[in-house]
Every structure is written in structure tokens, then in C-alpha cells.
Design a binder for these strands. Structure first.
Lengths: 169, 169
DNA sequence: CCCGCCATGTAACACGTTACATGATTTT
DNA sequence: AAAATCATGTAACGTGTTACATGGCGGG
């Protein structure tokens, strides 16, 4: 599960209810994609069962009993372990962005390393696309367009990475 | 299933075996993501059962009996219907690229419309990101980085779309 | 001779969605 | 008064992965 750790990571910022998390995720829909309630609640149950989050119920006055989840020490350890695990090559953009959004839990050095890792992967991908694009095989229109898109996207991402890495130093 | 139609679309270019499809998809891994064999073969079985593809077996001389799938008339109709169905708003980049790669099955007008649709969605997304980025709330580092990335990506995509749309006219 | 590629397939599992069920509070 | 938002949850289903099972052919 990849949302599991992302949700855990969001809880480092502040304790939240399932509904809070879903609302937050909703705004990241385009960037990362947001899981449905049918996914969020069971994920929180699983985290709780594993002792990575703790629960306290707000039953002050409002009826629906807000269930506020907080990350535990064990949770922080598990999250750190996840963040430290090198991303497997070929990870998706979505995964890159999930971890990036949790950059607050990384050291400066860790973040820089992470971005450099990504850089080398994108550079490799770019090289592959350039090879394909430059070879003068007869290519179908759709293929040509998609590859051209991919190349443009890779260039833009490399530019962003370079800019960001520079700002960080 | 979204790979179902994509695979069907790939068969408009030439008849292929499951292995061929997987090999082709592998090279699109970064761009689109490639399903495993455990997904490709059952998908072909389903397409066959629905009459969208036909099968003929190559049992000439080599042992493993290559199973070559071709798209049928019903398959072409189903594909066309899928391509004509407007993409629901908020579709992922992956879906955009899948359809883009099947541009060969679209009319010139259809392709232009498709790209313009995408353009308006990305533009909306860009506007949202710009609003968030410009608001001077205290934002966590990761959030800031991810949003900044998203904005750069959106700008790059808009530039590509404009360039491509111009070339197409 | 072993390794990697060609070639097909199945079963168990993981992850997430959709649809349903329930009900209070706030906004239009 | 109706609609949207807050708030939680479950069950069935869809889609895809991982791991397994099988086996021939070609090159180092």
C-alpha cells in the first residue's frame, strides 16, 4: 500500500480525522490522486491496529463523534524507515510527489539526495526518448505525439529539478 | 478496465501475441505504465470472449504455439465508441497519454478537440495551483515543493499543447 | 551447461472504487 | 424546505500484481 505511508506522513503535520485527510487529499487530486472514503477509513483502521497511529475520540457535544488520529513513536519510526528506503527505479511520478510532499520529514541532505536520484532517472528516461525520437523509423502519429510529449515533460522536469536543487544550496 | 481498450487499440496497428503486447508496453513503462503478464493474458482472453479480437494459432514449427490476436470489426466499433466517449474531467495523465497514443484512430478534428479539451483542464489546474502558490499562507516545505512542481509541469504541458495544436493546423 | 529470452497460463493476494447505510449541522 | 457539508463505516466488486508452473531455443 502506498497511500498508507503517505497518510501516515500527513499525520506528522497535525492530528486529523479520516474526513480531514480525505479533504486534504482531495485538493491534491490532480497532483497525486486521492483515495476514496472507502479506502481512507480502512487504512486508518489498519494503521491503528499496527500501532502506528493512536486514536482519541472527540465526543464533547457534536453528535458524529470525530475520531482524531495522531501518529505514534512507532509510526514515526515506520515512516522514517519508509522514507529512507531507496525508491525502486521506475517509480511513478505519483510516488515521487508523495515522498516530495513529505520532505519536511527529511534532512536537507536527504532531500537533496532524493532529488538527485530523481534527476538521474529522468535524465536516463530523456536519453531513451531522444534516441527513439531521433531514429527515423516510420512511426505512427499517436506514438510520435506521445513520445514528443514525454520528451517535453522530461525536459521540463529536469529544468525544475536543477532550479530547485540550486535553490536548496 | 482501462488497459483493455488500450490493448485493443494497439491491435489496430498490427496483430500481436500477448508477449508482443507486453514487450511493446514495456517500452512505454515510464510514460504509461505497463501491466504484467498476469494481466495481459487474461485481458486478451476477455477481449476474445467478447468477440472484440480474433485468434489464430501459429503452430508451424516452433513449439510454444504463438497465439496471434487480431482486432475484429466489433472490436473496432467498441474502440471507436471508447475513443468518442468524452474523457471524464480529472482523468489522469496516464489516461490522456493512452488515448493520445491511439491518435491514429481519430480524425484530425477529433484529435484537435481532444487536445483542446485537455488544454482547458490543464489551464484550470494551473489557475488553481497559482492561487494556492500566491497566497502567502505558511506552507510546509514539502507542500510548497510539490505545488511548485505541479505548476511547472502544468506550464510545460500547456506550452506543449499549444505548440502541438499549432503544428496540427 | 547455464542463462536469458521467447511464450503461455493460473491462483492468491493487494489495493482501491462504488454503492450503500446512517445521521447531524450549516448554508441557501 | 432542500441541499450541501460534516462524519463514519461496510460489502461487493474491479483491476492489477506476485508468485508459481511449464517448456523450447539460442548464445556465451
Amino acid at each position: 500500500m502506498s497511500f498508507k505511508y503517505f497518510i501516515l506522513g500527513l499525520l506528522t503535520q497535525r492530528p486529523m480525522t479520516g474526513y480531514d485527510i480525505k479533504r486534504l487529499l482531495q485538493r491534491l487530486d490532480w497532483l497525486i490522486g486521492s483515495p476514496s472514503f472507502g479506502s481512507v477509513y480502512p487504512t486508518l483502521h489498519a494503521l491503528l491496529k499496527d500501532g502506528l497511529v493512536s486514536l482519541n475520540v472527540d465526543q464533547n457535544n457534536d453528535r458524529p463523534a470525530r475520531k482524531v488520529y495522531s501518529i505514534t513513536m512507532a509510526g514515526r519510526r515506520a515512516l522514517q524507515e519508509w522514507l529512507d528506503r531507496p525508491v525502486e527505479p521506475g517509480a511513478s511520478l505519483k510516488e515521487f510527489l508523495m515522498r516530495l510532499m513529505l520532505a519536511g520529514n527529511l534532512s536537507h541532505h536527504g532531500l537533496v539526495t532524493y532529488l538527485q536520484q530523481r534527476r538521474s532517472e529522468v535524465a536516463a528516461h530523456r536519453a531513451t526518448l531522444e534516441k527513439v525520437t531521433n531514429s527515423k523509423e516510420k512511426t505512427a502519429l499517436g506514438r510520435k505525439l506521445a513520445f514528443d510529449y514525454g520528451l517535453a515533460a522530461a525536459k521540463a522536469e529536469l529544468a525544475w529539478l536543477d532550479r530547485t536543487l540550486e535553490q536548496l544550496s
